[in-house]
């Protein structure tokens, strides 16, 4: 299929992009890496009047440690995160997750901010941002604001972004010295959307886990923090009994939707298996 016709603009600055967006609102779509938008245009699932290509906004690209936060610009490519020593040092969970995102060719083009704004329930970055307690930086002609990841992902493919706002960055608290993280996912083929995945981080000292964060992808319309499982582990030893309790707790808080190949029951089972493996890795 061919895309239906659309207008095209390639602003030179964020201000210009915001001005275009303020003018065209929901009739416009932002083009970042294009790895989801272009196929959806060609499938005529999306037919915007105007495409605003953010490709020239180098101000939105880059990874930097700012005080206690790691700031990742929205236009930073997946591949840059995967290969960044700064990310590996201060947000190792992202480095662990990156290789699971599609394939290298897609990681070379796709962007961090594009993935967050798209909010696919099976995508890796939204779950990582939840697990890491990131705040999402959004801008509009009205100014800039920060939204906690927990309040950013609202519903299936829906975020807290207003029609005139552009996601410009995420700020991620840098990992503590005693922090451990693990990212696991199951996909039928390497690079496919995950059936289920887990982004886990905790601080571990003297055999106990603190600040446990378990975020799941692929188990709901949005990435989900498993608060009951987290509570079952918080402050205690991460032994077989605690892991079993956490796995049990998942049954009360995850309500996965069946996909083409897996029933809700199978997805819950797989989420428990992954949780067990992730926790064992955190404790090891």
């Amino acid at each position: 299929m061919k895309a239906s016709s659309f207008g095209y603009a390639r602003p030179e600055s964020l201000a210009e992009a915001l001005e275009l967006l303020a003018r065209h609102g929901e009739r416009a779509k932002l083009l970042a890496g294009g790895q989801s938008l272009i196929p959806s245009l060609n499938l005529r699932l999306s037919s915007p009047a105007l495409l605003i290509d953010l490709g020239n906004l180098s101000e939105l690209e880059g990874i930097a440690l700012q005080g206690k936060d790691l700031r990742i610009g929205a236009l930073t490519r997946h591949r840059a995160i995967e290969r960044s020593p700064v990310v590996a040092a201060h947000a190792p969970l992202l480095a662990q997750a990156a290789p699971h995102i599609a394939h290298v060719a897609i990681r070379n083009r796709g962007t961090f901010g594009g993935s967050l704004a798209m909010s696919d329930p099976a995508a890796e970055w939204p779950a990582c941002c939840l697990a890491l307690g990131a705040s999402i930086v959004v801008a509009s002609a009205r100014g800039e604001r920060r939204v906690q990841a927990e309040r950013f992902f609202k519903a299936l493919y829906a975020t807290d972004l207003a029609p005139d706002e552009i996601l410009v960055a995420a700020e991620i608290p840098a990992a503590a010295a005693d922090s451990r993280s693990v990212f696991l996912e199951l996909a039928r083929r390497r690079g496919d959307y995950a059936i289920v995945g887990v982004a886990a981080q905790a601080r571990r000292s003297k055999g106990r886990l603190q600040d446990v964060r378990l975020a799941f992808l692929g188990v709901a319309a949005v990435p989900l923090l498993a608060r009951r499982a987290m509570a079952a582990l918080e402050g205690g030893p991460c032994d077989a009994a605690a892991i079993a309790a956490a796995e049990r707790a998942l049954g009360d808080e995850l309500e996965p939707m069946a996909d083409l190949y897996h029933s809700a029951a199978t997805k819950l089972h797989l989420a428990r298996v992954l949780a067990g493996r992730a926790l064992a890795a955190l404790a090891a």
Partner: peptide
């Protein structure tokens, strides 16, 4: 032979 079919055969789901 999907994961689900194998898990069902194993009576895990």
């Amino acid at each position: 032979f999907t994961p689900e079919r194998i898990l069902k055969a194993l009576k895990k789901v």
